[in-house]
Every structure is written in C-alpha cells, then in structure tokens.
C-alpha cells in the first residue's frame, strides 16, 4: 500500500532502531531458535516477515533484506530490481521510467536514508547481486546467522 510505504520511508529513522531492537532480542533467544532449528523455523518466520514487511514496506521477500541500508524503501519494488541506486531514467518529477505513476523507489530511498544516518553508513554500501536461491526465505534468521559469523 502506497500510503503505508511512504509513511515508513518518512519514519525510517526509528523503524530502523525498532528492527535493531528486534534483531537484538531474537539474538538473545537464538540458542533456543537454534535448538528448534533455523531450517524448521524458516517457513513460519518468513510468513510473519511477509505480513509485517509486506504491510509496512511492500516488501517483495527477497530473503536478503537491505531495508536498513535503503532508507526503508524495498528496492525489489523497482521494476529493474536495482539494489544500488536509481537508474538514469528517473523522470523530472521523480516518477519511475517504467511506471510513471509510481515515484522512483530510489527517490524514496534517498529521502528515507537521510533519516537513518550518513550516506556512508547506509546508501553508499555496495549491495551484492541477489542470491536467487533464498528468495522467499526468512531474512531475519539469515541476519542472525550472519551476526554470528556463520554462512548465510
């Protein structure tokens, strides 16, 4: 939903803090999550994420979330799924080249990133190409594994 998506971008600063708190809490419970097994929890986690992030950000559930680094605008909503910034086709009014009625995801991302921190901390980070194997899987559990230095 457009209105919620835009609200999320405007409130990117504290939303990112909320997520950091959530990840911290999940990390505390990670031994338990581990005991149950990340594999077994992946589907229910992905389902919850799909609802929450789908509502707030129109998340496309790529399984390798960049929201905190893209101003809380999901880059997978870009018709070209660009994860590193806007293409050269953005219209003078900020409209998308392909869907003129939609504001460019990266116009929103830039606005949101201003609320989060300096460009160096977020939007300047070079995102690797999408790993297509983990589309639809839980990005939160993946973040926990990465946090522990394990393979994603």
């Amino acid at each position: 939903m457009k209105a919620v998506r835009l609200w999320s971008v405007r409130n990117a600063g504290w939303l990112k803090k909320c997520y950091a708190a959530l990840e911290g809490t999940l990390a505390l419970f990670n031994p338990l999550l581990r005991a149950i097994g990340h594999e077994r929890l992946d589907k229910p986690f992905a389902a919850i994420e799909g609802v929450v992030k789908g509502f707030l950000f129109d998340s496309q559930s790529c399984g390798q979330c960049t929201l905190g680094e893209t101003g809380m605008a999901c880059p997978m909503n870009c018709p070209k799924t660009l994860r590193n910034g806007p293409c050269g086709g953005v219209r003078q009014n900020g409209g998308c080249e392909i869907k003129p009625e939609m504001t460019c995801v990266w116009v929103n991302a830039w606005e949101g990133s201003q609320k989060i921190g300096t460009p160096e901390d977020t939007i300047k980070i070079i995102q690797p190409p999408v790993d297509n194997r983990i589309k639809g899987r839980s990005a939160w559990l993946r973040a926990l594994r990465l946090r522990n230095g394990e393979s994603a």
């Binding site: 590193n84 910034g85 806007p86 050269g88 219209r91 003078q92 009014n93 990266w106």
Partner: peptide, 14 residues
C-alpha cells in the same frame, strides 16, 4: 540531470 539529484554524486562514487 535526473532526480534524486543529491544522490547522483554518491551513485557515481559507488
């Protein structure tokens, strides 16, 4: 020449 204009130099830096 395209929006978001302030992002363009950062994009080139990337």
């Amino acid at each position: 020449f395209a929006p978001p204009l302030d992002f363009r130099p950062h994009r080139m830096a990337k």
